[in-house]
Design a protein around this nucleic acid. Sequence first.
DNA 1: ATACTTTTCTAAAAAAATTAAAAACATATT
DNA 2: AATATGTTTTTAATTTTTTTAGAAAAGTAT
Lengths: 407, 407
Amino acid sequence: MEKNLLYKRRIVKHLYFGNMLSCADLSDKIHKSIPLTTKMLGKLMEEGMVTETGYAASTGGRRPVMYSLKQDIMYVVSVAMDQLVTQIAILDMQNRNVTDIELFELPLTKNPNAPAALAEKINEIITRSGIPKNKIAGVGIGMPGFVNSVKGINYTFLETDGYTISQYIAGKVKLPVFIDNDSRLIALAELKFGAARNKKNALVINVGWGVGLGMILEGELFRGHDGFAGEFSHIPLFLNNKLCSCGKSGCLETETSLLIVIEKASNGLKNGKLSMLKEKELSADHPEKAFQNIVTAASKGDKFAVEILSEAGYNIGRGVAILIHLLNPEAVILSGRGSSAGKIWQAPIQQALNEHCIPRLSVNTEIAVSVLGYNAELTGAAALVMENYEREEARPLIYENKPDVFI
Amino acid sequence: MEKNLLYKRRIVKHLYFGNMLSCADLSDKIHKSIPLTTKMLGKLMEEGMVTETGYAASTGGRRPVMYSLKQDIMYVVSVAMDQLVTQIAILDMQNRNVTDIELFELPLTKNPNAPAALAEKINEIITRSGIPKNKIAGVGIGMPGFVNSVKGINYTFLETDGYTISQYIAGKVKLPVFIDNDSRLIALAELKFGAARNKKNALVINVGWGVGLGMILEGELFRGHDGFAGEFSHIPLFLNNKLCSCGKSGCLETETSLLIVIEKASNGLKNGKLSMLKEKELSADHPEKAFQNIVTAASKGDKFAVEILSEAGYNIGRGVAILIHLLNPEAVILSGRGSSAGKIWQAPIQQALNEHCIPRLSVNTEIAVSVLGYNAELTGAAALVMENYEREEARPLIYENKPDVFI
DNA sequence: ATACTTTTCTAAAAAAATTAAAAACATATT
DNA sequence: AATATGTTTTTAATTTTTTTAGAAAAGTAT
């Protein structure tokens, strides 16, 4: 790639993540000198990508001119999948939805048609939005399973014979496609826009059906050798003989997943536990709703609901204690769909840390609840696209003349 | 620092780690162009630091000239401490001992005189070697405890009022001093010269009195936010109610440390277990020897000894299973003093992984035994000094005129 | 043996980083 | 209140570094 283009793309990328930055800030971030950065900013302004947005307050000397991306220069398609439901949105350079968030059912298990359905839906939404493809930086997809983001492969779901899922969707949509594990994208969102912003070492717990983990180590999203790092759900922590979905027993997930929480609540009610919760509110058919009902009851002070949630929180805390011993993070952030229960969980997790952590380690670790919450995964998917924006593959144009599916 | 000096130091550093490298290799490693690297190599040769060591075999084109460090241009003082015994050696640029390894007792617990004794001994050994201080790149020290390598602080041992232990020793010895946790230095040794060489993600288990861990993540030694990462010994894994030295119960260490292994062997014999081991061979006064005796017996096929070791190995394996789930490394290396039992432990660890790991994760992880073995910590201490060689503090000269202890 | 490829090495041209100086602002002093 | 001093950003001139192109020294295939 031409070098000037690379530098310009880096600047665009950092303006996306930083929103408003001075020339000095940018020079720092792209590791280039100020004169060169000035030159590139000039070109970007000529091209209409970037605008001056006035002066920032002085910090003791001359006030710096601030630069921002223009509103409508580029968009990202964000996709957040779980095993049953998929969400799609188109975000602008301020992470604002320019379309409504599209929500539709797309079961991933035993569904050979899933990749085709996904590609079709993405195309449909792009077409409907009326945004030309050359204004779309790419498609970012968060999905469950064993995902190798670099290779673009999902080893668990979305099988596409002969191609990786990234290649398949890219071929159909004719845009660059980037994928990663859902929990890792949530961590990326927290790193770039959330509670882990500017932190060098932070762990993001994704409380959902399972308990996911995304790790920020030395300022970077950590993926491990094959891209499988963060399998927190399945660390062998209990001797409870409960069989886990992974085939082993005693996994953390067997005591902490939302489904277990609902099951425990349901069983408790059957055994005559006193609670404002009603059995029909805990239907296994609508786990999302069932969980929300438990959280609502707990936040209203329902003792049984608090008890059930605390138990799960305490067990997550035992797992977090292990993480802290191993990785010595500065913060642990509770995020993902279950983070609505975050406030309730903070106490029992802290309790577990007090019991199971060497004090020197736990006192230096802040336990925080995400503010991104439900939207974290979509934000993370957009961030993934922009992370890769400076890479060769990120150029929409090269896809225009490619066949439907290419290698 | 002058820029040329920086580049030259980088080249020296990489020649230390790489032993023999071509100009193109070096250009790659120091991230500078070939013409500039050529120029710097020329200067280093003029100064007598570097020599050409003939041509390497061709890989399809013109043969590259290889460069090496001259033998006697520089040395490193390596110190490897445990809670009772300290080893000191002076190594040359090929990691060869130029003095015998000095071994002396230096208890760290309740010994306010330890820092002074250490400094004195280091000075004594340097003086005896006859090597001038300006030929010594620095002192590297591996020590147990909570060590922040960047700040040069040991929070557990070697208290020196008002100064960090690094500052204290540096002031007394008048050489730059670098410290780190013993397990992390072993990992560094394995990364630079051992079984983890050229690996990007590897975990190094230091089997000693406790079970230490050094992590290589994305090609770098990982230290965590406060420098306390790798507290593998104290992850809460058992519900055994055994009190650990750290004050908690159920730590991994309570089932796997060498002392526990010896105790179990001793108790077994008392209860009439059949073995070639004799009780007097397991004296708690000489744990090092006692452990070696168990290993010897096991390698001769003694069933009881194998059983005892396997049990510990299996429990370590349970911990390793957690590590693999979280960090997805490409290799796990058994190193440190207990690595003489490495071969015996490989089987039970693998067994634990088969039981407790998701297959996709464990099949991609190689379990290897160190070849550096007993010397790993000393090698790591030297590597630590040379890692920092390009940094400003690494210049011996600035220490010459400083007072005994400085800030 | 000769043509072609590959890699290293060297010299001239282009690019980028430093350095120095100027401009714009904040704070302290007279 | 006016002036001096210290910061920080911006611009211009100089130096450093990289890129590019080509020569030299090998290996490989015809």
